[in-house]
């Protein structure tokens, strides 16, 4: 609809006491420009709309190319300069470096465990959020979902230090029962616990729309056909919630794989993930070559995890129109 066709009348009419707004004038001008857009160039509009996103992705790819270049150069620690020539030494070193193997497997194991835990815990929460008949409960659940987003990851990790420390709240409570104190911090399970707590809201946020899109009548239909509550859940609801489950798994898995803060704060220095190793190479030993190599491996792993999930479920599982 061309706004400009109706606006002059409004301006001139006796009921048009309000001034003709600046934003309307801007849109009028834009429409006038759009009207002159040649019909045969209409195909370029979608590319123009995509341009900002393509620019961001392009910068990302450029950054990766720069890192790929650095990863093939070796640091000379007598001059702290990267070599002029290309070599695969950084990658060869990764193959033989025990610290890399340990952090690699630790990161991958955490990715699997945290993703599974988040899906299991997020599903009932999202289910209750979308199915409850009580507006009050829904409000409480929504506040519970969004509140953690207002508190950053580092602050949350420090919160756990306060709660789980030797003199923390939990040990103080156990002390009242004559138990402890126990070392609850600085271990792999603590890091996993912190990650699950951090990632859970993301998983709920991904799952809730998928569950909301499943009509309740379908569950009632399953029940009327004789399906038990559990049978309806596993045979009807879960398959229909697959787009949400896959999206949640994608987000949680990639964020966990690349996480830095939780292992750094809750790991006590001996439970590093790959991102911590990358940071160490860039900022502790100033070895941009080796750091770039690890960063690229991490990027490749993240892409592979996402690709694997989509390959297992199919792109159509995300609900993308036309995809299979």
């Amino acid at each position: 609809m061309a706004l400009s066709s109706g606006r002059p009348g409004l301006r001139a009419g006796p009921s048009a006491g309000a001034p003709y707004r600046l934003s309307w004038r801007i849109f009028d001008a834009l429409e006038a420009v759009a009207a002159r857009w040649p019909a045969r160039a209409e195909g370029t509009v979608k590319w123009l709309l995509l341009a900002p996103a393509l620019l961001v992705v392009g910068l990302l790819v450029f950054g990766l190319l720069v890192m790929a270049d650095a990863s093939l150069r070796v640091m000379d620690f007598r001059t702290y300069q990267l070599s002029d020539h290309y070599a695969t030494a950084n990658y060869v070193r990764l193959l033989a470096w025990g610290a890399f193997h340990a952090t690699l497997w630790r990161s991958l194991a955490a990715t699997v465990l945290v993703t599974l835990a988040c899906l299991v815990l997020a599903f009932p929460y999202a289910w209750a959020l979308t199915r409850t008949a009580s507006p009050r409960l829904r409000r409480v659940l929504l506040v519970g979902l969004f509140l953690p987003f207002f508190v950053g990851q580092v602050v949350r990790a420090y919160g756990w230090l306060v709660i789980l420390g030797q003199q923390g709240l939990l040990n103080q409570a156990l002390g009242l029962l004559g138990l402890g104190p126990y070392r609850l911090l600085f271990s792999y399970p603590t890091v996993l616990f912190g990650l699950v707590q951090y990632m859970l809201p993301f998983a709920v946020l991904m799952l809730a729309p998928a569950l909301a899109a499943i009509p309740e009548e379908i569950e009632r239909a399953a029940a009327s056909c004789g399906a038990s509550r559990w049978r309806a859940l596993f045979r009807v609801v879960l398959p229909m919630a697959r787009p949400g489950l896959i999206a949640a798994a994608l987000v949680v898995a990639t964020l966990t794989l690349t996480d830095f803060a939780m292992p750094a704060i809750l790991g006590g220095g001996t439970n590093d993930f790959l991102a911590n190793l990358v940071h160490d190479q860039f900022f502790r030993t100033s070895n941009a070559g080796l750091g770039s190599a690890i960063a690229l491996v991490l990027t490749l792993l993240g892409t592979s995890v996402a690709g694997l999930l989509l390959a297992l479920a199919g792109v159509g599982a995300l609900g993308v129109r036309g995809a299979r």
């Binding site: 610290a99 340990a102 630790r106 220095g269 590093d272 160490d280 502790r284 100033s286 070895n287």
Partner: peptide
């Protein structure tokens, strides 16, 4: 860098 790598290898 070399000492760091060895230390990390042991501790990680």
């Amino acid at each position: 860098a070399e000492w760091f790598a060895r230390f990390k290898e042991i501790m990680q």
